[in-house]
Structure formats: C-alpha cells, structure tokens
Design a binder for these strands. Sequence first.
DNA 1: GCGAATTAGTAACAAAACGTCACTAATGTC
DNA 2: GACATTAGTGACGTTTTGTTACTAATTCGC
Lengths: 223, 223
Amino acid sequence: MKPAVRRTTLAVDVVVLSPTADALAVLLVRTPAGSRERWMLPWDAPQATEGLEEAAARITESVLGTTPAYFEQVGAVADGKRHPGDAEVSVGIVVLSPSGAGAPAEDAEWFPIASLPTLAPRHRTIVERAAAVVRQRVDQSPLAFRLLPPTFTLSDLQSIYELLLSRRLHKASFRRALQASYLVEPTDEWRSEGRGRPAQLFRFAPKKRRGARRGVRFDLFSE
Amino acid sequence: MKPAVRRTTLAVDVVVLSPTADALAVLLVRTPAGSRERWMLPWDAPQATEGLEEAAARITESVLGTTPAYFEQVGAVADGKRHPGDAEVSVGIVVLSPSGAGAPAEDAEWFPIASLPTLAPRHRTIVERAAAVVRQRVDQSPLAFRLLPPTFTLSDLQSIYELLLSRRLHKASFRRALQASYLVEPTDEWRSEGRGRPAQLFRFAPKKRRGARRGVRFDLFSE
DNA sequence: GCGAATTAGTAACAAAACGTCACTAATGTC
DNA sequence: GACATTAGTGACGTTTTGTTACTAATTCGC
C-alpha cells in the first residue's frame, strides 16, 4: 500500500439544537438565491488553522450570536448525495444551545425537528444522524443539561429528557434516579411560574461517583 | 455568512481491532523509510467515488486480506497534530475483525492495544478515541459479535465483553442478561477445548424485542 | 479405573433498582 | 374558601441484578 493524501472539498455542517415550547428545534439559515432548497444547515469550510469544533463554534456564533460550549460529533459523511456547497465530505457537528440563549440572525430561524422544510439530501441525513446520536448519548453524557440555563427546575429537566427520548417519564422514578446520580445540587432559589406550587431551582454539579459499575446491558436494537 | 468549500487534505485512518490471546489487538503497518516512527495505522485518502466506510474496507483488505463487515466511526479529527501523511483532517474508522479472520500482510502486525509502539500523535489520539467509542457502544450495538466467528461459546462471548470493558463479569449474571435479550440462539454443536466440559455453540441471531423501554439511566461519567 | 482438576451451566437467595399509586404542599383563580 | 394546577415525597409490590453455591461433563495423572 502506498498511502497518499488527496485534496478534498470539506464542509462542517452544524446542527444547532435547542428546546422550544414543546419540541426540539433545529436552526436553519436561508439559502443564497438560486439554490434548489430554501433552507439549509449553517455550514462552512474549516479554516486552515482551526479545529472542527472551533469551526462549528464560529459558524454557530455567526448565526446565533452566542458561542456555545457543547459539541457532539455526528461523524463524517461522504455518501455522494447533494450538499448545498457541493462538498465531497461533510463533518456533522451537533451544537446544544440552552433555551433562550442567543437570537437567530436575520436569515436564520428555528424549526421543530419533526417538521423541517426540504433540505439538501446530505443535510437531511446529517439531521437524522444528529437526532440519533443525541438520543443515544443522552444517558451517557450530560447532554440534557446543555439545553438548559445554568439553573433550572427538575420539571424543566424532565421535560428535556422527554423531548430527547420522545416518551413520557414518571416523575417519582425520574427524581429518584437523579438523586442517586449526584448530578445536580439544589440552590436557595425558587421559581413561581404563575400557577401551581413554586419549584426549587437546581444546578448541574456532578459529584465524583464511586465506580459502582454494573453488568452488561445488551440494550441492542432499542426501537 | 458566505459559506464556501475549501480543498483540504484528508485521510481515512483505520483502527482494525481483533481479539488475540488475552488482549484486544490493533493492526499496524510499517512506515516508509525515513519516517519519524516505525509504525502507523493503515490509512489512505478516500478515492473520489468512494464512501468513507468503503475506503476503510479497501484499506483493511490491503493489509489483512479480508473485507470486514463492520465499521464504527470514531469521528473526524483536525487537531493540528502530526499525521504520517500530513493530512489536515483525519477520519478515524474502527473495523472489527473476528479472531482468526485474515492474515496480516508482510509489513503489518498485531499489537496489544495496551502496549503500542510509538505512533504519530494524531494516530495515538485516534486509537484512544477508537477504544473509547468501542467501550461506549458495546452494549448498544452488536459490536462484540463482530469480533467472533459465526458460532461461538458463551464463554468466548463473555471473554470478548471482558476485553472490551476491561473488567471481569459474573458468569451467571452475564448469561441471564443474554438470555433475556434474545440475541443468540443455540446450535446443535458442542465444542470440546481439551479439558473441561464441552460448551454449546451459539450463533448471533437477534430477535425482535418488544419495546420495554425503561426509565432514564444517568450513567454519566463512567470513567 | 478413579479421583483431582478444569471448564460449562444453573438454581436460588438477598439486595438493589424500578414502576406505580397515592398522598402532601404551595401557589393562583374563581 | 373550594378548586385547579404544579411540585415534591412515601411507600409498596415487582423486576432486575450480584453473588454464592451448587451440578454436569470432560481431560489428566496415576
């Protein structure tokens, strides 16, 4: 084998996710005039000196006005399908943005992930894979907390999990599991939403857990 | 934002994993004369018409002589660290090869993952991330079965899980969980290894499981 | 041939985790 | 003050899990 590099057109495509009223939303930008679709994921080529997550941060910044702190890679895609900039290879990156952080630029808009407008096929693939990645990692990384402001109520947190997993969770079980995980700590503040009992605010503050590793799970094929 | 593609040097770096006697092994190839390190991961640029997994299959084929069937993406890396071919961006791909499948080419060799020779920094990163990815997904995808021949004993399977997770599992728990998962079915064959009671051979044959989804896990930070 | 060693496989029990129901608590609305 | 609404918890039965201890089938040494 005589390996050799080859110059390839590369794009970083960013799936910015944020919870809206009652659905996960994706940030899309309007395409330039003359494009086949009206909307696309924010994307750009990575600059020479810049890492891929850095590129994703820069792209997000330009569309949302804030620099996000949390990324997950969706992976690289070279499926031959059409990309808005005709990149041969795309690197998909998910950016998690807390509700209420930043504001979409003039040509950008939030869309519920379940009802997106038509996208270039490559972009549709990336959004689907992004959703799968997020769903898969939600209980192995502190993903859900990155979709919330620094302090939040436990009901808020449960709603995020319900959005991400798209199924209802039982309140008592959820709280018991959370308690056992030492991931949050209460603050002194309480928030009254209008009606109902005020809720205590918590913050994400994971404590070192002793390595109580359990057996194998065999959670395959979870559909 | 005016996104535009840019030509970038890209490499597909392949981490071929296979179980050897008592450790996971990585397949490395000798570097060309004059390189800083003596060994490297097999790699190449993806050809114009070829997907990334296809490229990984081709590269593996050229080093091991067999076309593997299972891939996991490690993700794209553009960390500025040195790559043997000075690619700006690497896509890492894990290939799982059953024990005994194929034979290393003349300039290739298996190394236990825990004691690799010096690699270019980029390659070291990719191996580390590959190990992490495999460990993380082992109970969500049928990963372990791809490291075994088509039929295997339950003790074989348990050993693979122990290799991947690098911790011991309890036999009874392991088998009970496996039973409940409907992932394997027994064959009529038995294998005698020399000493000890012969073991029944099983094959990987996942059955549709009713979606008995449970609550959230909060298995964070399982370091 | 026969006991010791070795590997495979399982039954059964205790502890932990989980799903659920039913309740108490604090607020706003009428 | 009754009631609707949201927050939070106690308690109970069921399921899952970790562990121990056993039985089963083979080879090895003698």
